[in-house]
Design a protein around this nucleic acid. Structure first.
Lengths: 240, 240
DNA sequence: CGATTTGTTGACCGACGTCAACTACCGTGG
DNA sequence: CCACGGTAGTTGACGTCGGTCAACAAATCG
């Protein structure tokens, strides 16, 4: 499933100081002393294969996770078994925040591809955020960013047509690729059409149609999960 | 605009120890010493009239706010001037969290009725969360709860029909009323039909129609903003 | 009291969902 | 290596849910 190592894979490293996610991760912007403490608390769990769960909705809350490589989808399931993907997560992202309130996970997280993860127990997290001001600040930032992302998504879902939704989605992925040092013009989607459709609140067929539509308009080129953005400006103007 | 003081208004009190929001507020679950510190940091800003802004999208981030009485809507405006309400906020809710990352507000907050507020500067917030473990924990909880709320909303927007959306909305309001010690069966909506519509991502006329529909089905009684839930179970089964 | 805002209801229409057929790809085993 | 079945994605035909436009009613305000 790792379709293009050059683009998608980050080489896992052993400690936070040498991790190439430093700039994005909660572990960024910390003093050497703080980083050392974090390193001691972080556990490198076994990598997940595609389709494996990081945690299930309803699981007792024990730890937060940071993605080191790969990608993950977070989704919730309602009483009728209907699923809604609430986010796609990439290296550097902090997972499990939704479980803090109720002490059990309110979403499930499943690997979209082979993914490596860092685990940080809730106890250690609390100790660290008490003892390390920079870590505390970084966590709040991470939390805030999560809110912003989902607000953008709500805006898209509530007010935009399908073409706009898809443009917004592609731009969001593009942006995240860029932040992580990859091409923002050409990348491979790690999620299926139906994942995208579910995330955007539309039918999978509609996503298909809009992909080909955007291609016909010369804005992007698509071949299955490979995407190339030919005209970023057009895409942005469609996104509105 | 205060349509029914018995239901909507909370009497502002002077210090957190005697505030009746203790159970809900970030100020809850704290030691006496911690509460004292918080009290010193909290500023009781002038109450807002209906329609007044607490902050505007784009404003520099300086403070967080806690609602003491009344209610507030939070919304974002995109480049085209299209608005999307991302949440309704009630006494005890913490506002401004979305501004932590970028250091400016990414949403606007406007009072839906005469509302009293507590202000807590970002500096003081950081000091408090370093010095008061319980406050720190409460803030994270508050943050997490905010995420859960918006996840529920995304689920509704993405996967549900209009009748379901409205049922879910009413149940959410009902729940929040209950948490705050009011009737969960009978309450007054502080927001307009078009606010509800915008929040749910549908047309205002559609909200109107669904209200009358739910009334015809004998599930609720509606008279403008006054709502009475006659059959909570039916409402829940509609919400799915 | 008229003016304005807020909410309701009806008629019509279009964007998107559903159903179905088809194609391309992927992994497995012969 | 090919045969095969299963999954993912595309495309078309058709139906419908909810949006839009418009008229009206009710409440609020000056």
């Amino acid at each position: 499933m790792v379709q293009n190592p050059k683009i998608v894979t980050l080489h896992p490293t052993l400690d936070c100081n040498h991790c190439r996610l430093h700039a994005i991760c909660v572990a960024g912007n910390m003093t050497e002393e703080e980083t050392k403490r974090l390193d001691e608390a972080i556990v490198h769990v076994n990598p997940l294969a595609q389709g494996e769960y990081l945690f299930h909705q309803g699981d007792r809350f024990e730890s937060l996770y940071i993605i080191r490589s790969g990608s993950v989808k977070s989704f919730m399931t309602d009483a009728d078994g209907i699923e809604q993907i609430v986010g796609f997560n990439f290296p550097g992202d902090l997972l499990g925040l939704d479980a803090i309130d109720e002490k059990y996970h309110t979403t499930s997280a499943v690997a979209l591809q082979h993914s490596a993860l860092c685990k940080l127990s809730w106890d250690d997290f609390n100790k660290l955020s008490q003892q390390c001001p920079h870590f505390h600040a970084q966590c709040l930032t991470s939390f805030s960013r999560e809110l912003i992302h989902i607000h953008d998504m709500v805006m898209a879902m509530g007010q935009k047509g399908v073409e706009q939704k898809l443009a917004i989605f592609l731009l969001a992925i593009s942006q995240r690729m860029k932040e992580r040092g990859f091409s923002d013009k050409e990348f491979i989607l790690s999620m299926s059409r139906s994942d995208i459709a579910n995330f955007l609140g539309v039918a999978a067929e509609t996503v298909s149609r809009e992909f080909t539509q955007l291609q016909k308009e010369g804005v992007i080129q698509v071949d299955r999960r490979q995407v190339k953005i030919d005209c970023m400006d057009s895409l942005k103007s469609i996104a509105g």
